[in-house]
Structures are given as structure tokens and as C-alpha cells.
Design a protein around this nucleic acid. Structure first.
Lengths: 155, 155
DNA sequence: CTTCATGGTTTTATAATGCAACCACACAAG
DNA sequence: CTTGTGTGGTTGCATTATAAAACCATGAAG
């Protein structure tokens, strides 16, 4: 396999996000980190993935600023992997994937869990596209526009 | 490379979604279909990807029910690829990826476009997690719950 | 009919993945 | 202190996934 096309320099933010998130297993590792896993062994045990791939993915996620390493919380000499704010920011992506699957999966009965509001136990509402003024938007009611040049910032 | 682990039988909807969407290029093909591309050559020209990979991806997206083939709209004998409702349902995923990248990208100045409300030209609002009753939810305010057994349906 | 366009298919070589074995250090127990 | 187990990797190997390029079959236009 020749090297996969990199989307790193792409002008589209979707493509750019795939550079950080698009490797096989990456989103599932983030999912587990959101559930609170932190230790290499925890990720490995939960996901059942190859250790060399896990090591490479964790390294990549750290390099992309999604995870950070921190001293283990039990006081041992080991390191843990903790989500950064950038990592936490992936939550809507995971929710979107989940809701798409729940709605369109060929075998919805194979899905084991639903995402609920912790306080009430009720399902989280479907994600909605909304305009600045709150109007609900369908995909057809959106479009792309050139990004305005950023304002100059004082040094 | 040995065969990648399949998430097909996974009980988590996020993992399951990656089976259909997780191949390199798949989400970008869908993005282009959402922009209105339909013909093999259009996808190929726009994305600049290898034709054999494009053919394989289009086949996979059709097999997963995200795209369907239809006679070409110009009356020729060719086929077109059109998004199904399931395909259109991926829009929030793409929006979530876009918004994550816009917020956290190391080089936001390299992003060329913003997603706007077509009528007003104003940026689309950031996606929000909301409870059934409309309360805004942080990730910590959500949890997973076993999916209730489906009701028996009349034959 | 000829020529070009379209939508693939096939071949080839390298990167990406998973498996399994190995390794270096950390930690715990005696 | 020694020994054994746990932890977090690293390494070697084989197969699949990817991209590039060439090839091919049909469609369309003149």
C-alpha cells in the first residue's frame, strides 16, 4: 500500500479533521477516554486491539493535542492518557455518529446502549442544525461561503 | 497488513457507523455528493483520488445504502450516484467534524470556507447536546443506558 | 465509420494493520 | 535484598488497503 493521501493541508475542515481522527481505532480510543479510561492497559483490555497499534494511535492522538499524558493518578511511576479540551470537543462527532447509526442501522436491535441525560435517564435529543437566529436548518438550507480574512491581531 | 478489525457486529453504534463510513475517502465522497456531485468523473476530478479506490468506495457506499445508482439525468446510458435518505442523514456528522476542526485546528487560517445559513449568509450555530426537555447538556451530563428491548411488532 | 469521453478493471509496489514474541522497567511480596 | 508478576511498550513478520498507472469496454459525438 502506498502512503495514504494526507488531508493535512486541505482547505476543508472536514478533511483536516480526518487527519487527526481518521485512523482505524482512533475514534473508539477517544470514546473510551470519554468514558474515563486512562491507562494503556485499560484501553487495550477494553478494545482488544493490537498493542503496537494502540501505542501508535495514542502517540498520534497526543501529537494532535487530543490526548495528553499525565502522571498516573494512583501515584505510581506510570503515565496516563487524559483528554484535552480539544479531545472533549470531539463529543458532538461521536454523538452524531451514534445517532446516525441508531436511525439508519440495518440491524438496530444489535445496538446495546442509548445515550441519555444523566439526570432524567431520558434519551438525548437528536442533533439539529440551527441558524444563528435559532431557525432549524435542513442541509439544503445551508451553503458554504468563503471564510472572511481574519482581523489583524495586536502583537 | 492483516485484515483490519471489523466493527460490524459491535454493539456500539459509533463503532458500527465506522464500518460504513470509516474507509479513507468515504466521508469526503459523501461530502461531495451532498454538494451535488453525481457522476464518477465528477467525484474523481474533484477529489483527485485513485480511480480504483473511488470505484471501490462508491461500491461500498452503495452496498451500505448511503448512495444509490440511478440513470444519468442527462439521458445518457451512464449511471449516477445519488444520496439516499441514509446518506443525507450523515450531514450532522460532517457538520460536527467541520465545527470541531474550526474550533480546534492548529492552523485555522488554512480553512477556506464556513458553513452558513443560505438565506441569511450567517454562520450555522454550533451543535448542542440537548435533553429531551430542551436543557443544554455537557458530555458529563450524559451517560449510556442499556437499550430497552423493542416492543413486539404485529406481523 | 472514427475519435474522444466515460467508467471502470487490472497490475504493481508500498504503507497500514494485526498477531505474537520479546523486552525493559515498575511494583509487590517474601 | 531477590523473585515473580504487571505494565507499557517495541520488534519482526505476514497480509490487506491504498495509490499510481496502464489497460479496457462501452458510450457519445461528429
Amino acid at each position: 500500500m502506498v502512503k495514504r493521501t494526507s488531508f493535512e493541508g486541505d482547505s476543508c475542515p472536514i478533511a483536516r479533521s480526518l487527519e487527526a481522527l481518521g485512523d482505524w481505532w482512533s475514534l473508539l480510543i477517544i470514546r473510551e477516554a470519554l468514558f474515563g479510561l486512562r491507562r494503556f492497559g485499560e484501553f487495550q483490555n477494553k478494545l482488544g486491539m493490537a498493542k503496537n497499534i494502540l501505542a501508535a494511535r495514542l502517540r498520534s492522538l497526543v501529537d494532535h493535542g487530543i490526548l495528553a499524558t499525565a502522571p498516573a493518578s494512583d501515584g505510581s511511576a506510570y503515565q496516563e492518557y487524559v483528554l484535552t479540551p480539544k479531545g472533549h470537543g470531539t463529543f458532538p462527532i461521536l454523538v452524531a455518529l451514534r445517532q446516525w447509526s441508531e436511525e439508519f442501522d440495518d440491524h438496530p436491535e444489535e445496538i446495546a446502549t442509548i445515550l441519555v441525560d444523566r439526570a432524567k435517564g431520558r434519551p438525548v435529543k437528536k442533533l439539529e442544525m440551527r441558524a444563528e437566529d435559532g431557525r432549524l436548518l435542513s442541509p439544503a438550507e445551508t451553503t458554504l461561503k468563503p471564510r472572511p480574512a481574519p482581523r489583524r491581531r495586536s502583537a
